[in-house]
Design a protein around this nucleic acid. Sequence first.
DNA 1: AACAATTACGGCATCGATGCCGGCATCGAT
DNA 2: ATCGATGCCGGCATCGATGCCGTAATTGTT
Lengths: 337, 337
Amino acid sequence: MFKPTTIKDIAKALNLSTSTVSRALRGGYEISEETKKIVLEYAEKVNFKRNPIALSLKERRSYSIGVIVCEVANQFFSQAIDGIESVAYSKGYHVIISQTHDSYEREVINVEHLANRSVDGLLVSLSAETKDYSHLEKLHDQGLPIVFFDRILNSMNTHKVSSNNFKGAFEATEFLISKGCKRIAHLANASQLSITAERQKGYEEALRQHHIPIDKELIKYCKHGGRDQIEVEIAVREFLSHDNPPDAIFVASDRLSTGCLSTMKKYATHHHDILVAGFSNSELVELLNPSLSYIRQPAFEMGEKAAEMLISIIESKYPIEEFESIMLDTTLHPNGA
Amino acid sequence: MFKPTTIKDIAKALNLSTSTVSRALRGGYEISEETKKIVLEYAEKVNFKRNPIALSLKERRSYSIGVIVCEVANQFFSQAIDGIESVAYSKGYHVIISQTHDSYEREVINVEHLANRSVDGLLVSLSAETKDYSHLEKLHDQGLPIVFFDRILNSMNTHKVSSNNFKGAFEATEFLISKGCKRIAHLANASQLSITAERQKGYEEALRQHHIPIDKELIKYCKHGGRDQIEVEIAVREFLSHDNPPDAIFVASDRLSTGCLSTMKKYATHHHDILVAGFSNSELVELLNPSLSYIRQPAFEMGEKAAEMLISIIESKYPIEEFESIMLDTTLHPNGA
DNA sequence: AACAATTACGGCATCGATGCCGGCATCGAT
DNA sequence: ATCGATGCCGGCATCGATGCCGTAATTGTT
């Protein structure tokens, strides 16, 4: 069996009390230099590591933060996680990652699991399916620090980090217009997500400013966030088979963008006539065919910011009253014909 | 502050002892139906959740398993993690993911962190840089269950899950030969990795069987696993600028495959003359240009198997003597001209 | 020399949940 | 009526580390 050395083992071996050993190892004040040296050397020798579980129990904190994302395979989130980890590690926190796969039930289970395991706080990007937020609100009311990033919950009073979705969508749509497109479809994520509304507004505003009518038949939502490829296929094929088909598609997220391209390659004989622009943080975008103009979010920085904010709440001595909402800029990368 | 209800709170509220409450909530034997009902109802009412930290301390186990991978952004690993999670969740275990980014130091830090946090076992895929295995051997000797997957450590006596790298590499190379390629380069991972040796053997055996000489100048290793894109670029550009350049490249891993294509697109004017085949579990492969013939590993199944094996060790009442090595088949997906 | 002050360490309770053991009460049996 | 059996529950130690408090021994002060 796996039995690490404890402070008690050291105390017994050196004929000291556990208190003395503990203080020799930590603060060290009130302990003679001589004893300290003996203890430190012996601890080193037997490869002593203090048990963080015992500490968590006593101190009511674990020095770990939980992260809730839909999936780590999505490059936006894996980049954000890298940002989160870089900040967390430098401040002595461990990161526990949990995937919802855009399922509401998984989100509830994972959130409760992490809360029970005494994470000191939660970084949350909502699942596409989530419409009921009571599992999060309950914990927030109990005092658990929560910071949202990307897919935020506006109604909760806490820190939030997002990118400028309106502007990103606006620029992408305007780019398509500048390329001469007149009928621009919009493939959107689940309608209850914050990012969906913001990006749709950007899309519609760009059309409006360029006097292009908004056609509701050219806007389709994927309510499971494209968790199943088939969901995306159906939507895109409806666009393609429209009486008056679009000459461009603006896609609202990473997974949908690639799903859209796959479908086009599979079914559209003349897919080079349709321009596609979408949100994507994939590192492979430049290699794609059909090509994709893409809006990139500063995922790493968003992760950093979110982690910094969460840790500042965790370590704050007084309850926070004033919460911040940070918005970072996206960048447009034009591509293709 | 965040203070969940404890068993003690319930005991006080109902004027019972903590032992009684505990037994009422759990086994329930020796407790009258009446008391049980009262306790259960009250616990439900105040949303009681037992504290897993306290349990971990007492029971010396956490019902969580640690996973060490180089990076979750790599689709092979994110798929493997999905497999791990599906098994772990169904057996009541939580999964803690840790990324090494193919750095040896990060691997050591993360392994020790997880061991300290009392994971019940570890699923490990080695970092590309790792040559010294003492951090893992020490824990294994202390009795911590460890199962390797993909990038395994042959010298350690434990369960292992891998794919048939030899066969996969052999088939890919043979495919390139069948397309008429005569000078086939090999872009490999760090030389100390198990997968590197196995794949190189498959590559060389295919050449041998088809009477193609093995040219050591056409084999290049990326000792950081392509962590920096520049590492891949240098290797590929050396291939391209060779006096007698290759007409095909067989690439040994996911990240290297995409890095190779990027470099070719960037620097090779006639890159369509060079066929590329490589290991990749990316879902975007079919959309890539230049196109990539790819060998796919059953990542999800590998994760499942590895998790099942680890949990079987953890839950075994007697020390395991006989360890298994499982090997799963890959599939070749031809593409391009 | 007598007392205060400081040094250096041990004892003990604590965090939350569990389980052994011990005890009280009620019931049935002889 | 007395004893054993059983049902039902509380007390207490335990897991590892910490920190308050108590205390012995040594040093310093007048």
